[in-house]
């Protein structure tokens, strides 16, 4: 089960990160306030960037890093949008 090839190790690590994302998703579901959910999704976004970088290394496809960059940018935008929405129920959006 434990891989030996270096590419396999990257992919295995990516799988572990997806499992961590599922664990983090518990907070997004259970989190009593919207702020908890926002933070959980933000962490998920960062997690996604890491997973994409690991996939780029594991599958020898350097272009996948471009997708990771887009995510890094949009994650910020989503965080700002949702945080501003939670203030005064979108009145300041």
């Amino acid at each position: 089960m434990i891989p030996t090839d270096i590419n396999e190790i990257f992919l295995f690590a990516a799988a572990i990160f997806v499992l961590l994302a599922i664990a983090m998703f518990y907070r997004a579901v259970a989190g009593p306030t919207t702020q908890d959910r926002l933070l959980a999704v933000n962490v998920l976004g960062t997690n996604t960037v890491v997973i994409l970088a690991l996939l780029a290394a594991g599958l020898d496809q350097p272009w996948f890093l471009d997708i990771a960059l887009i995510y890094a940018l949009l994650n910020f935008l989503m965080a700002v949008a949702i945080s501003k929405f939670t203030v005064e129920r979108g009145g300041v959006l």
Binding site: A21, A28, V41, L44, L55, D66
Partner: peptide
């Protein structure tokens, strides 16, 4: 918010299925 997380996961799956263009569009 959770649908945003769903889109993140979907884009990784597109990437894994060797469709980087589609994943970028889904991401953006």
């Amino acid at each position: 918010v959770v649908f945003g997380a769903y889109s993140l996961g979907m884009a990784i799956l597109y990437t894994l299925l060797l469709a980087p263009d589609v994943a970028m569009t889904e991401a953006a």
